[in-house]
Design a protein around this nucleic acid. Structure first.
Length: 534
DNA sequence: CTTAGGG
DNA sequence: CCCTAAG
């Protein structure tokens, strides 16, 4: 089977890349990864290893099934581990539903208009929603990929990624997995919405304050900006001031929301009787910060009912008119299930790697939301900083590592915003599992080594913590790993079969790239004959 | 935003 | 993983 697959490479198995990008002249520097060009030594040995790899693979498969079942079972009871002072790691059982969310109670204050108004919380929440909506509305146009739009607005999308699936490609489990997921449309649309984001700002100047995305500034300037610009914390930070500005019916009246307090939901910790109070405090703090470490989404509740329609305006939902205390609530909801590293799906038989999912969260969350409890303290400015994505306000002294969470969030949680030293945190290291490597290899075989965004969307769309840069980097290390001797490799061993495919694919696509490069050079020479005269 | 590469 | 230059 391994051999069979190898034979396909170079034929229909690979796909011709789209128009090659213009060469980047200065990019040809020799990196440490390229120095090991003596692949010759891995020949006879690799053949042996390949056979061994195949055997290993078979073993893996049977193990996979076991693992999978285990994961399923344990996920039902979300466990996280909290270290007690004794150093003993005790499983800290906390009900996943009540553990992963928190409840906000807010107050609606009638306010004439603008001024320096609302704190970050309300402002950000509203503007985020609106921007999202715009993106969704603009999704329906993508000239390059949409071949046809029928009357029902069904998009017919050309999929240049799939077209060279040849009949020679055996219908392996992996391929089935791909085909079973009709995500192509999604993919295109998502790309569009991402790339259109700036345009949204520009086009909607009426409703939005346009600001050049911070990311477009040089890195150091960005950091300085975040550190020093006081406006960063008020509504000049690129978000709209007027959440209802898109709504023609409420041009003038603004709703000022004050989030009074929030409640940390019920959770459990386990700690020895002999532990000190201080360690108890620490444990509680760790548990609390762990709750806030996931990728959180904001939900809006009105009089105990959840408002699901993001498109409704505040006035339509009655938020403007109701001044009753507790009428409006904000909830923080986890995006995905948080899974302890021990429960991580090391191996899934899908080539398309996807993180574990569950709906239990959502259900439990709703139950919780219907019986909101009381307020325990006033929310302060630092509470608004408790955003997972906010890398600017982290206090390195107050960081707590979290078992393993979902998205590409930090492994840490800001507890308090300190004055001065603020450092962008490094993301938690997450070694690629074999199944992820498999998915990566498969995708690169198809798409080549120059289309990481497509690779991401194709094989890692659900794995939010894997960016296309991550995938590119992983490929780099995979190529490196494949070239060194097995003795020099570290970490979870990657099946030799995969490493073989890595080298073959890498070779193939490198060759392809070189050919294109050559063609391009010829073109340049032909079209500029004067150059030769000079 | 994406890619490519160095760190 | 991070960071950046360039496209």
């Amino acid at each position: 089977m391994v051999l069979q697959k190898r034979l396909e490479y170079g034929f229909n198995g690979y796909q011709v890349p789209p128009t090659p990008r213009a060469p980047r002249s200065a990019r040809k520097r020799v990196s440490s990864w390229k120095k090991n060009e003596d692949h010759n030594r891995m020949c006879a040995f690799d053949l042996l290893a390949t056979v061994a790899g195949k055997l290993l693979l078979e073993v893996d498969e049977s193990v996979d099934k076991k693992n999978h079942e285990e994961v399923k079972t344990v996920n039902k009871c979300h466990e996280s581990t909290i270290k007690t002072e004794n150093g003993s790691s005790k499983p800290n059982v906390c009900d996943q539903g009540s553990c992963n969310k928190s409840f906000f109670v807010s107050e609606i204050i009638k306010s004439p208009v603008t001024d320096t108004c609302s704190g970050p919380a309300s402002g950000i929440t509203i503007s985020d929603c609106k921007i999202e909506d715009i993106n969704h509305k603009q999704m329906n146009i993508d000239p390059p990929v949409v071949n046809n739009v029928d009357c029902n607005l069904n998009l017919v999308i050309r999929d240049d990624d799939e077209k060279s699936y040849g009949p020679t490609q055996p219908d392996t489990l992996n391929n089935k997995a791909f085909r079973a997921r009709p995500r192509i449309g999604d993919r295109r649309i998502r790309r569009l919405s991402a790339s259109k984001q700036c345009d949204v700002y520009r086009n909607k100047k009426n409703g939005y304050k346009y600001q050049r995305p911070l990311r477009d500034y040089p890195f150091k300037k960005r950091r300085l900006y975040q550190l020093d610009n006081p406006s960063n914390s008020d509504n000049k930070s690129g978000f709209i001031e007027d959440g209802s500005s898109l709504d023609a019916t409420s041009q003038d009246s603004h709703v000022k929301l004050k989030i009074k307090s929030f409640r940390v939901p019920e959770f459990f910790i386990e700690i020895p009787e002999t532990a000190t109070i201080s360690s108890l405090k620490r444990t509680v703090m760790e548990a609390v910060t762990a709750i806030f470490s996931g990728e959180l989404h904001v939900g809006v509740m009105l009089q105990g009912k959840r408002i699901r329609d993001d498109d409704k305006t505040l006035s339509q939902t009655g938020i403007c008119h109701d001044n009753k205390l507790d009428a409006l609530g904000f909830t923080l909801e986890p995006n995905e299930l948080q899974v302890s590293p021990f429960l991580c799906p090391e191996n899934q038989s899908l080539t398309r790697y996807s993180p574990p999912q569950t709906v239990a969260n959502e259900v439990a969350f709703q139950q919780q939301a219907e019986s909101p409890m009381t307020i325990s303290r006033n929310i302060t400015e630092s509470d608004h900083e408790m955003s997972v994505d906010d890398r600017s306000g982290l206090d390195s002294r107050a960081l707590v590592t979290v078992p393993d969470s979902n998205a590409g969030e930090l492994a840490v949680v800001p507890v308090r915003k300190p004055k001065g030293a603020e450092v962008a945190q490094r993301r938690i290291r997450r070694p690629f599992s074999v199944s992820e490597v498999e998915a990566l290899v498969e995708a690169v075989e198809k798409l080549g080594t120059g289309r990481w965004r497509d690779v991401k969307l194709r094989a890692f769309d659900d794995a939010k913590h894997r960016t296309y840069v991550d995938l590119k980097d992983k490929w780099k290390t995979l190529v490196h790993t494949a070239r060194i001797s097995p003795q020099q490799r570290r970490g979870e061993p990657v099946p030799q079969e995969l490493l073989d495919r890595v080298l073959i694919a890498h070779g193939y696509w490198s060759h392809q790239q070189a050919k294109n490069q050559l063609k391009l050079n010829h073109h340049q020479l032909d079209s500029t004959p004067t150059c030769r005269l000079l």
